[in-house]
């Protein structure tokens, strides 16, 4: 028998728990990395490659969290608004989102950084905008599926007003799929920023990032320096995706 929420037991929950553990470990390691770099002044280029990559992780992960939350909120808001505003607004908003999703929006990030001088704020905003349409599409699909569920009809048959149905049935059942859809913005934001970083147009100078370090190492032809940031980037992308996936409600099986 499936439990309602795929919690800590069973396979999907196990994967989610592993992802959370990996993310927590990474965040902790990045946070204490300055202590490993022989105290005093932190100079990334002299440090051990792994310590340097962990130092970069502070920039990459915190930026991914910031821009991802922004993009997720933007995308979920977009999808919810489309569902709530009625048929015509829905069609407009969602066709815009679908068209934007088809474009390589990630290219906007280095473009904006190059043209506008790349402050953290500008970078975060472009990343959020690049990520939002896909999240909006997901949100809208989840909400549409939810609106067709039979238990809402049953609630209407029980004489509940539309407000009560929204409060007691729609929102509790929408919370988890929307959280899952929004959480997918985190790995996307990390990937977008790393891509810009590879081209040397990512986070500005004092802040290191995995993409920037990997790009620099590739240009210098230094495989040892390339391995650590690339590996950490891959692991955190996997962990963020697995975490978002584990948030999705399990589908009840007969």
């Amino acid at each position: 028998m499936m439990t309602l929420f795929t919690g800590s037991e069973g396979r999907p929950g196990g994967r989610g728990a592993a992802a959370v553990a990996v993310l927590a470990g990474l965040a902790l390691a990045c946070a204490v990395a300055p202590l490993m770099a022989d105290g005093a002044v932190v100079r990334r280029h002299d440090a051990d490659p792994l310590v340097a990559a962990l130092l970069d992780g502070r920039g990459s992960l915190s930026f991914a969290l910031f821009a991802g939350l922004l993009g997720g909120a933007l995308g979920v808001g977009w999808g919810v608004l489309a569902t709530a505003l009625g048929r015509r607004a829905e069609r407009r908003l969602m066709s815009t989102a679908t068209r934007l999703t088809a474009l390589p929006l990630v290219l906007l990030v280095p473009l904006a950084a190059g043209l506008l001088g790349g402050g953290v704020g500008i970078l975060a905003l472009t990343v959020a905008l690049a990520v939002a349409p896909a999240i909006a599409g997901l949100t809208h699909a989840e909400l549409n599926a939810l609106m067709r569920r039979e238990f809402l009809t049953a609630a209407r048959a029980a004489g509940l007003s539309e407000g009560a149905i929204l409060r007691r049935h729609l929102i509790p059942n929408a919370r988890r799929p929307l959280l899952a859809a929004g959480a997918l913005a985190l790995p996307r934001a990390l990937a977008a920023e790393s891509f810009a970083g590879l081209l040397g147009l990512g986070l500005p100078a004092p802040l290191g990032s995995w993409g920037a370090s990997a790009g620099l190492a590739a240009r210098l032809g230094d495989p040892v320096a390339l391995a650590a940031p690339a590996l950490l980037l891959a692991v955190s992308l996997w962990a963020l995706c697995a975490f978002a996936d584990s948030l999705r409600p399990g589908h009840p099986r007969p």
């Binding site: 238990f151 049953a154 609630a155």
Partner: peptide
């Protein structure tokens, strides 16, 4: 099965129906 809200116990939904009607 689909006509029952997965996020509430059976009793809660039945009580809700009773409260409403």
């Amino acid at each position: 099965a689909a006509a029952l809200d997965p996020a509430q116990t059976v009793g809660a939904q039945l009580a809700e129906t009773l409260e409403s009607l």
